[in-house]
Nucleic acid binder design. Structure first.
Length: 842
RNA sequence: GGGCACGUGGCGGAAUUGGUAUACGCGUACGGCUCAGAACCGUAUCCCGUAAGGGUUGAGAGUUCGAGUCUCUCCGUGCCCACCA
């Protein structure tokens, strides 16, 4: 037999797989088969091509789906391209190529590279988010949102990246900077299309409980959504000069501390400040403060040692509705304008931030929640005396840190003694506040002032207002232009293309203008897993057509019902609070309008751990530490690369690349190959009980481990089995075939070649996974460890199922054990069946 | 500051979930094959000790017949969120 020549083998089988359409998935499911939809987060095709880190997740889904297929599932495993967005456009501008050309080129390169690795993708279902046939439906979905008011126009100031020259969503920020380019983000007020994702906040939260996702991803989504239940309470404003009717609404989660509110704080951007201007005696100062904050970036406002700043709004007081006390009103940037009501009641005794602020500006601190029973008892004793004293006696020193926990209410009139929970309800009721729920999650700013995105399919008519583009006119194609660089004015580059912008109003036929903003990068990835399902559907209608069938049709719904939800979704953890929230929101909307029948898009999720460079840093062109998969495939073969990446360490953990270790995987495959020489149809002795037991244990372990994404231990158990087989002079072909089958998900080319050598005509991909026989797996002799008082003193071999007495007898018969036991009193004997005996002596 | 992980040989890591710690692989050493090298094959490889034996999972304590695994304190590392009232 030939030596293992990976180049010949891999080329050969990749060709065969393509010509025989081995990996094509039909929408016609056999009735007896369970579907299994295995999905990779589709890549953004960058100009740099793949490095060895990229395919790790793809290898995993490939191995996983091959196992599923061999276990009788009908699998759907597609791939496509997320090609709209800033990176593509910035790359294009830098290299002076039109994004469309760049994307085409990059996709071609990516596809070639992926092709070298022997994946079982059904390429007939390939999709590309920049394909007008695709984004026609992205636009269609946007229009459905528009119709029911889920997409709305806003003029609120939004995050603006001065370098990318576009507005951004909250999710696009990292530490107050643009996630893409790192520039510090500013606030800018420009007309925006916004999606009301906050309407779905509760469902996004509740749905998490039904998902089989890593706990920390679910937890970060919970934090991102940031639900908090609280109360809205009104404070009347009193002017020293005039009689006024103004009031300030605050939001609090701790209404129980209302008696401890010693001042109010209003965000500098709060609209009420305009109304209060006339009443204030120091409004110039307040204006100065407002200007100061306006000029600061998000980073400056939140960083700089967290020193809080603010100014008092003099000339007015607010009245605490609980005790009618007059308290000062401050303007400070530590209160955020866009959360809650943009104003808070400050309770320095029970809030860290209020405390810091009060300390700096020497504001009063009043404790109204007892830390413990002792403190409460003490309060009761002092109460009578204290009541007759001035309230200022109750002001604490600033050295005692604030108590932010819950406890019994004190200094709170008739609410004294109530638990914080009860006090919240009762005090809210008492002051006529209303309970409500707020979220940290913000609505999704959906407009980008850039060229390379899906045009938003709306038309602005001076007579009719905003008019949706009629469905029959979709897609609104992105016009081909010479110059697509961002303008920086807050207008999209599309605005300059008169021919494209000026249209007839679909309603009144009068002159009108197109919306020139485009959709964000994330739009296309919100439904691509749906698009894969519908790909073949339309192909069968019109061969080679690039159209997708009507998403709203009965036929589409039938097919989606068949495939959704995605059973296994694999990708990087960096999408935890971006793509994974957006897509869940989008999917829930599609559920509401009846396109899909499941509430959630992705049932199971696994996170890929990064492959770092050998220097421990991220692989990046910038650091010059990138390893190119093409070279590894050339030298060692795709199968070796696949085995190595799965063997490196736990799948979801970051591991540094080590080219030296790779030879271990290569050796493993060579030895599997060479073992063929010892495999004979007739004349091999029967496998020993120990070996056949090991084989069946391995069958179980490899299957279980792949299902659980523990690829590293699956491979190590295959190595153990191989080592054991290598100790034999001859093995039967059947035994060898089992080994080859177990290896095949990891090394499909090699296995396919060996399978053919063994005389099979059918692809190994179509074989079934070996059956595990528990009786055989448990039939091998076992070793029982003998401990004396917890110290291991020996071991003996026996069969399973021995009774406690039998085990004890055998253990005591061992000379090594006898030595430690004679002359001692046996206190107890602990037996772990089939594993261990511990003889405890005095 | 908050939340979540985690800490095992020279290195990547395993440990049936409380039951023989260091599986599997890399590396290293010696030997074989070779004119020589690469590749390959074999043997060895946590520490102390000739041995019997003893010690060892970041440090210390606790629970237990028994702890890498559970609890507490400390030290260290990584990731995520970060003025959300």
């Amino acid at each position: 037999m030939h030596p293992y020549d990976h180049k010949r083998v891999e080329k050969k089988w990749q060709k065969v797989w393509t010509t025989t359409k081995l990996y094509r998935t039909s929408d016609t499911l056999p009735v007896t088969s369970d579907k299994c939809y295995v999905l990779d987060m589709f890549p953004y095709p960058s100009g740099d091509g793949l490095h060895v880190g990229h395919p790790k997740g793809y290898i995993a889904t490939d191995v996983y789906s091959r196992l599923k297929k061999m276990r009788g599932h009908t699998i759907l495993h597609p791939m496509g391209w997320d090609a709209f967005g800033l990176p593509a456009e910035n790359y294009a501008i830098k290299n002076k190529i039109h994004p469309e050309v760049a994307v085409k080129k990059n996709i071609k390169r990516f596809k070639e590279q992926l092709g070298l690795l022997g994946f079982n993708y059904d390429w007939e279902r390939e999709i590309n988010t920049t394909d007008p046939a695709y984004y026609k439906w992205t636009q269609w979905m946007f229009l459905q949102m528009f119709h029911i008011g889920l997409a709305f126009q806003s003029n609120e100031p939004i995050n603006w990246c001065p370098s990318c020259k576009t507005g951004l969503a909250n999710e696009d920020l990292e530490d107050g900077a643009c996630e893409r380019c790192g520039s510090v983000v500013e606030k800018k007020a420009i007309p925006q299309w916004v999606l009301r994702i906050t309407d779905y906040a509760d469902r996004l939260l509740l749905g998490l409980d039904t998902l089989d996702w890593p706990e920390y991803i679910k937890e970060s989504q919970r934090n991102w959504i940031g639900r908090s239940e609280g109360a809205e309470i009104k404070f009347k404003v009193k002017s020293l000069k005039l009689k006024v009717e103004e009031e300030i609404k605050v939001f609090t989660t701790r209404a129980d501390t209302l008696f401890g509110a010693t001042y109010l704080v209003v965000a500098p951007e709060h609209p009420i400040l305009k109304k209060l201007e006339a009443l204030s005696s120091n409004f110039e100062e307040v204006k100065g403060y407002q200007n100061q904050t306006r000029q600061k970036t998000e980073i400056e406002r939140t960083a700089e040692g967290k020193e809080k700043t603010g100014v008092e709004l003099k000339g007015i007081k607010a009245i605490n509705p609980a005790n009618k006390e007059e308290i000062p009103v401050w303007v400070a940037e530590y209160v955020l304008a866009d959360y809650g009501t943009g104003a808070i009641m400050a309770v320095p005794a029970h809030d860290e931030r209020d405390f810091q602020f009060a300390k700096k500006y020497k504001l009063r601190v009043r404790e109204v929640v007892a830390r413990n029973i002792g403190e409460y008892t003490q309060y009761l004793e002092q109460q009578t005396i204290a009541r007759e004293m001035d309230l200022s006696k109750l002001v604490s020193v600033y050295e005692i840190p604030p108590f932010t926990g819950t406890g019994q209410a004190m200094w709170s009139g008739q609410f004294d003694g109530l638990s914080s929970e009860e006090a919240k309800k009762k005090i809210t009721e008492f002051v006529g506040g209303k309970t409500l729920t707020k979220y940290k999650l913000r609505d999704w700013v959906f407009s980008r002032q850039r060229y390379w995105g899906e045009p938003i399919p709306l038309i602005h008519c001076p007579k009719c207002g905003v008019v949706p583009v009629p469905e029959k006119d979709l897609p609104v194609k992105l016009p081909k232009v010479e110059s697509y660089e961002p303008t920086g004015t807050g207008e999209s580059p599309l605005a300059k293309i008169d021919k494209w912008v000026n249209v007839k109003c679909p309603k009144c036929s009068g002159p009108a203008k197109r919306e020139t903003n485009t959709m964000p990068q994330w739009a296309g990835s919100c439904w691509y897993y749906i698009a894969y399902c519908l790909r073949e559907n339309l192909k069968s209608q019109k061969p080679n057509s690039k159209q997708f069938s009507n998403l709203n049709s009965q036929k589409s719904k039938r097919i989606l019902k068949k495939w959704l939800p995605v059973d296994m979704y694999v990708g990087g953890a960096e999408h935890a609070t971006r793509h994974l929230i957006y897509a869940r929101f989008w999917h829930k909307f599609l559920f509401d309008i009846g396109v899909v029948e499941t509430e959630e898009p992705f049932q199971k999720l696994q996170n890929v751990g990064l492959i770092l460079a050998s220097d421990g840093r991220k692989m990046s062109k910038r650091f010059g530490n990138v390893v190119n998969p093409d070279e590894i495939v050339e030298r060692f073969g795709a199968d070796s690369l696949r085995v190595y990446e799965m063997f490196m360490g736990p799948f979801n953990q970051a591991v540094a690349w080590n080219s030296d270790s790779l030879v271990g995987s290569r050796r493993f495959l060579e030895r599997v190959w060479k073992l063929r020489e010892r495999a004979v149809k007739r004349g091999a002795p029967e496998l020993s009980i120990t070996l056949s037991a090991l084989m069946h244990q391995t069958i179980k372990k490899v299957g279980d481990d792949i299902e659980g994404f523990r690829f590293n231990t699956a491979i190590s158990s295959l190595m153990i089995l191989l080592n054991a087989f290598e100790g034999e002079q001859l093995i039967s072909t059947n035994t060898y075939e089992t080994l080859v089958t177990l290896v095949s998900p990891f090394a499909p080319h090699l296995s396919e070649e060996l399978w053919e050598h063994l005389g099979h005509k059918k692809s190994i991909y179509k074989e079934s996974w070996p059956t595990y026989d528990e009786r055989i797996a448990l039939s091998a002799p076992i070793t029982i460890t003998v401990q004396v008082s917890g110290k291991t003193r020996g071991s003996f071999s026996t069969t399973r199922g021995k009774s406690k007495e039998e085990v004890k007898e055998m253990a005591l018969a061992l000379p090594a054990v006898e030595k430690w036991v004679t002359g001692k009193v046996i206190k107890t004997v602990i037996v772990v069946p089939d594993r261990l005996i511990n003889i405890v002596v005095l």
